[in-house]
Design a protein around this nucleic acid. Structure first.
Length: 652
RNA sequence: GCCCCCGUAGCUCAGCCGGUAGAGCAGCUGUCUUGUAAACAGCAGGUCGCAGGUUCGAACCCUGUCGGGGGCUCCA
């Protein structure tokens, strides 16, 4: 008899195997000809299998508790799994407890996951009560027919059903259409899992389809790993910028103003001001010109740019100006529609077009922190990262085709350098290109080839990790996106550099070349932080509120040991403030311990303490955010230390 | 926009089956003057998001609406 994975691997942490590169259940047989590798539960594949099997147990539990529940899909995802159900009554947190109990019961029963190959007709008969599964069978059938190009590989495989078999009776207690593989038994799931929440999700991701109830869960090889994961979530929650924004009094979203529209409090305002003014100084040094444009414009501008035809849904509704009506309400004079701007580029283009341009003017680099308004879906709004009004640190560079590559290189170098100033260091690039689906793209083959090539060269020269993604380009040109990894290891897409010959075309932009001919410039769209609000949120979470000294809203707080030390501390702090340090003495009627605690909760970089000893010696005592002390520092040195840290953009 | 959950003092939260609200912190006022994360006492603070409805009576039940959260969707 041919051996199975169970014969080959006795180690209990092996949950599946890879046979000639294909994942299989341990129960599968091998001939001895293949290359067979064990899949440990700790490996990425093993974890996915664990989570997938847990999702199955969830589904079985839901159908046990509520036999009316119909099954959607239940795949493993990062850190966990989900399963979608159609249930008439919405699931409550109480239901999750009941379901968890049932899942534990299924685990204890030690049901075996048994793979069974079925024909399409058999599958349809067995799953007649599961409309969504039938739909999946139909999709797979279509793929097998070769009608869907990418389905060939998938379609070549068989339809399989996994039976959950009671080991004592040998009865099949539950089954599900599934490709597998699975753990050998429900018992191997262990106790490292938890159900997390319920959410709505459209069937197969389309809002035209019915909305199902999705149960999210997480699963790990052990309870300890589950706890560690839960602690990571708690740590992330503590850093949530919405929470820190409130605790540190940085910004808010007054209901009276409207959803997704932020106001910046003094402490948030000073941080943002420092960020913006530093960036602006560097832009000026880099040959950019600062421009300002209004927040609204007549509809024509966005008709010319094309935004109104392709993006009207994402724009705020128009404001109608100067319309006149008679007593009956009939229009006697047509009004003009104005729109809040969703992008700055059309206005920058108008600045370019304001006078004839020569090749000597190029590259022309226009930059603006331009506030734009987009009508985001209410359900998509999220703190500062997804809002309806935000400020782009936008730039539009007008170049000759010959200048494109060199200019893109300079932009990328500049972007990286400026992001490093903010303490971000871990970057990756993504090059979005066209694919072969010709109808989607405008512009010549030669243009795509040369511009994509220019971006690729620049990206490779940066030495950063580069991923090429065909098909992801804008319809008019390729782009480079820059992703950054934060202190928690999460990646954020920040900067983007896009090549665009389309808008210059639409607006008929020209420059006079050296030979006197009229030529069309190419435009480079470039956002660096992207949205300043979102960038701020990312930095806030990256630093957990403990900003580097130059960004900290209050850089030093003075804590007198007793009231009569206030004048001495004030004399030191007067000098600090004179050098531009944001420094305040806490002269309130509180215990010094409490003042230290307050400064600490506000994440102030330097707490400066002085009592009799310091006053007598002409020194102060430092307390840093990590609780460390440096006592008896001469005033002169203390001031130098703080100003040096600000100057160096140091973290302390 | 869709589904589910939530909305009580500046913040965090309590308020059993309907009987018109309570704590801690923060604030203010006093007392105490103290070497590295919370002194003590007192005072003040809410038409329970808003608008309707049911009821003798609503923070609590119903409807709508605004706002928030988790997802889905979208992201030129």
């Amino acid at each position: 008899m041919a051996p199975t994975g169970f014969d080959l691997f006795s180690d209990r942490s092996v949950v599946a195997m890879r046979v000639d590169g294909v994942l299989k259940d341990l129960a599968a047989t091998v001939t001895g000809e293949e290359v067979v590798e064990p899949v440990g539960i700790d490996s990425p594949d093993g974890l996915a299998i664990l989570r997938h099997s847990t999702a199955h147990v969830l589904a079985q539990a839901v159908q046990t508790v509520n036999p009316e529940a119909r099954l959607g899909i239940g795949p493993p995802i990062e850190d966990g799994f989900y399963y979608d159900f159609r249930i008439d009554e919405p699931l409550t947190p109480e239901d999750l407890k009941t379901i968890s109990k049932e899942m534990e019961r299924i685990q204890r029963a030690g049901q075996r996951f048994v793979r069974r190959v079925v024909t399409e007709d058999e599958a349809r008969a067995e799953l007649a009560a599961e409309p969504f599964k039938l739909e999946l069978i139909g999709l797979k059938g279509a793929a097998a027919d070769g009608r869907d190009g990418e389905g060939v590989e998938v379609g070549a495989g068989e339809l399989t059903i996994y039976d959950n078999v009671d080991p004592r009776t040998g009865d099949t207690v539950w089954k599900d259409l599934c490709r597998g593989p699975h753990l050998p038994s429900t018992r191997m799931i262990g106790n490292g899992w938890a159900l997390q929440r319920v959410a709505g999700a459209y069937w197969r991701g389309s809002e035209r389809n019915p909305q199902l109830q999705r149960v999210y869960g997480t699963a790990w090889p052990s309870k300890d790993e589950l706890r560690a994961y839960q602690e990571r979530l708690e740590e992330a929650a503590k850093r949530d910028h919405r929470r820190l924004g409130r605790e540190l009094d940085l910004f808010s979203f007054p209901e009276e103003i409207g959803s997704g529209l932020s106001v910046w409090h003094p402490k948030g305002g000073i941080i943002r001001h420092e960020m913006e003014s530093h960036a602006r100084r560097r832009h000026l040094a880099e040959g950019y010109s600062v421009v300002y444009t209004p927040h609204i414009s007549k509809a024509d501008l966005f008709a010319t740019s094309g935004h109104l035809s392709t993006y009207a849904d994402g724009m705020w509704p128009p404001l109608r100006m100067d319309e006149e009506r008679d007593a009956d309400g009939a229009v006697t004079k047509a009004g003009v529609d104005y729109y809040l701007k969703p992008m700055n580029c059309p206005m920058h283009i108008l600045i370019y077009r304001e006078r004839p341009r020569s090749y000597r003017d190029l590259p022309l680099r226009l930059t603006e922190n331009g506030t734009v308004y987009r009508n985001e879906l209410s359900g998509a709004l999220h703190g500062l990262t997804r809002v309806r009004g935000f400020t782009q640190d936008d730039a539009h560079l007008f170049v000759t085709p010959e200048q494109l590559e060199e200019e893109v290189a300079k932009v990328l170098e500049f972007v990286l350098s400026l992001l490093r100033d903010f303490g971000l260091t871990d970057f990756e690039l993504e090059l979005s290109m066209r694919d072969d689906e010709k109808s989607k793209w405008i512009g010549s083959e030669a243009y795509w080839a040369s511009s994509t090539d220019a971006l690729r060269k620049v990206a490779l020269a940066s030495g950063l990790k580069l991923t090429e993604v065909p098909g992801e380009a804008a319809f008019y040109g390729p782009k480079i996106d820059l992703k950054v990894r934060d202190a928690l290891g999460r990646t954020w897409q920040l900067s983007t550099v896009q090549v665009d010959p389309n808008l210059p075309e639409r607006f008929g932009l020209e420059y006079t070349a050296a030979d006197g001919s009229k030529q069309r410039p190419i435009m480079i769209h470039r956002a660096l932080m992207g949205s300043i609000e979102r960038f701020f949120a990312i930095l806030l979470e990256h630093y957990a509120g403990a900003f580097p000294v130059w960004l900290a809203p209050v850089q030093a707080v003075g804590v007198p040991i007793a009231d009569h030390h206030v004048p001495y501390l004030e004399s030191v702090f007067d000098r600090l403030r004179a050098t531009g340090v944001r420094a305040e003495v806490d002269a309130s009627d509180e215990r010094m311990q409490k003042k230290i605690r307050a400064a600490s909760l506000q994440k102030v970089p330097y707490t400066i303490i002085a009592g009799d000893q310091d006053e007598a010696a002409g020194t102060v005592s430092f307390r840093l955010r990590d609780g460390s002390q440096d006592n008896g520092v001469p005033v002169e040195e203390a001031i130098a230390r703080i100003t040096a840290a600000i100057e160096a953009k140091a973290q302390v």
